[in-house]
């Protein structure tokens, strides 16, 4: 799996921006990492790469933020508050896993409550951010051709 070492939040954002420029419709990025790892930073870059000019902010409370105006619509999900399969289903999260645009899911490990997802076009691209030091991050991701 490709690995990227980021030395600064700006580098994390730049990686996201490259992904945004390359993203195809239907892409789902499943983002994992601790509080403060830089998940939102990566999404900011992704939005910029997609040509979204709206300000990206955390969707933790609202669960889903939708950003239009770019090359593709960006759906930004945060599952931090959802713990059970019933909550995920009830909040309608599944609908965003085959998006008309690009979806990025923070705290994607919560999706495991829904059971294993098979390989195929709808399979989310796993992205994990590990904290190495105060500024260094290791970003490991499935190769999705970006």
């Amino acid at each position: 799996m490709p690995t990227f070492i980021s030395h600064h939040p700006a580098e994390t954002e730049a990686l996201g921006e490259r992904w945004g420029r390359a993203a195809a419709p239907g892409l789902v990025l499943a983002l994992s990492g601790d509080l403060g790892a830089g998940k939102t930073q990566l999404v900011k870059g992704l939005a910029r790469g997609l040509g979204v000019t709206m300000r990206v902010h955390s969707p933790t409370f609202t669960l889903v933020n939708e950003y239009g105006g770019g090359r593709l619509t960006l759906f930004h999900l945060d599952l931090y508050r959802l713990e059970t399969a019933a909550q995920l289903v009830s909040a309608g999260i599944e609908e965003f896993l085959s998006p008309d645009g690009v979806a990025v899911v923070e705290w994607a490990e919560r999706l495991s409550a829904l059971g294993p997802r098979g390989a195929g076009p709808g399979r989310p691209v796993a992205v994990t951010i590990e904290i190495l030091s105060e500024t260094e991050r290791k970003i490991i991701y499935d190769d999705f051709g970006a």
Partner: peptide
């Protein structure tokens, strides 16, 4: 407005 997290989210997290 906020550039990242909301104030309430900062309390919670």
């Amino acid at each position: 407005g906020t550039l990242d997290d909301a104030a309430g989210e900062c309390f919670d997290k």
